[in-house]
């Protein structure tokens, strides 16, 4: 009698365990995540917020290489260039005798007048000679950097701030000149921040 009881208990335990395991096994894949409460539908026709470009300088200024208490002294290009006759051959600031001496220029074999409009230094010059406002640097750069412009237009180049979801908020985008100095567009050397300071990244010492 006693042994029968023991066996019954054992068999029952095994069966219960097996049943439970089976239940979990079959239940596991069917488990669904708690449905999220209804959100405002992301319909394509919902109002889309705008993407604005971060404004750049409206008029071009150049560093004089001197500084006062407020910082480096800059002067608007047109101050001099309304009267000074430009040199269309000029490819380097080092060739100049005055002004622009502090200007670092490393941008292919372009001359100053490839991009600056000789007749109007407050504007820019496209390759076909036409004039565009100084703020439209993107158009100017895109003449040569078409692939980058394509990437930019698809959000794959150039930084941004704001919303990834334009149905919920606006976005601000950098233009070329926010990250690249047009006279020396390669990324400059920068000091990296926040080096890791992990626990025991040096060999641990045992007591």
């Amino acid at each position: 009698m006693r042994s029968l009881l023991a066996w019954l208990t054992a068999v029952l335990t095994v069966l219960l365990a097996a049943g439970w395991i089976g239940l979990r096994l079959t239940a596991a894949p069917a488990r669904v995540d708690v449905p999220s409460p209804v959100q405002p539908a992301r319909a394509t026709e919902s109002p889309r917020f705008s993407t604005t470009l971060r404004p750049g300088p409206a008029t071009p200024r150049v560093r004089t290489g001197t500084a006062d208490a407020q910082g480096p002294i800059t002067v608007a290009c047109s101050t001099c260039h309304q009267t000074t006759k430009p040199n269309p051959e000029l490819r380097s600031a080092a060739e100049l005798k005055q002004f622009h001496r502090g200007l670092e220029y490393r941008h292919g074999s372009l001359t100053c007048l490839s991009c600056h409009q000789a007749s109007n230094y407050d504007a820019l010059r496209l390759a076909d000679g036409s004039t565009i406002p100084f703020a439209e640097t993107m158009t100017l750069c895109s003449q040569c950097h078409g692939q980058k412009r394509r990437d930019y237009d698809h959000g794959a180049h150039g930084g941004m701030q704001g919303f990834w979801d334009l149905s919920r908020g606006p976005r601000t985008r950098n233009t070329c000149v926010h990250c690249h100095d047009p006279h020396a567009p390669a990324q400059p050397f920068v000091q990296p921040v926040l080096p890791p300071r992990d626990r025991l990244s040096v060999p641990a010492k045992s007591p």
Binding site: D198, L200, S201, P203, A204, K205, S206, P207
Partner: peptide, 11 residues
């Protein structure tokens, strides 16, 4: 490569 040897507390 971050090494490990037990601390006194672990021992």
């Amino acid at each position: 490569v971050v090494e490990y040897l037990p601390s006194l507390a672990e021992w």
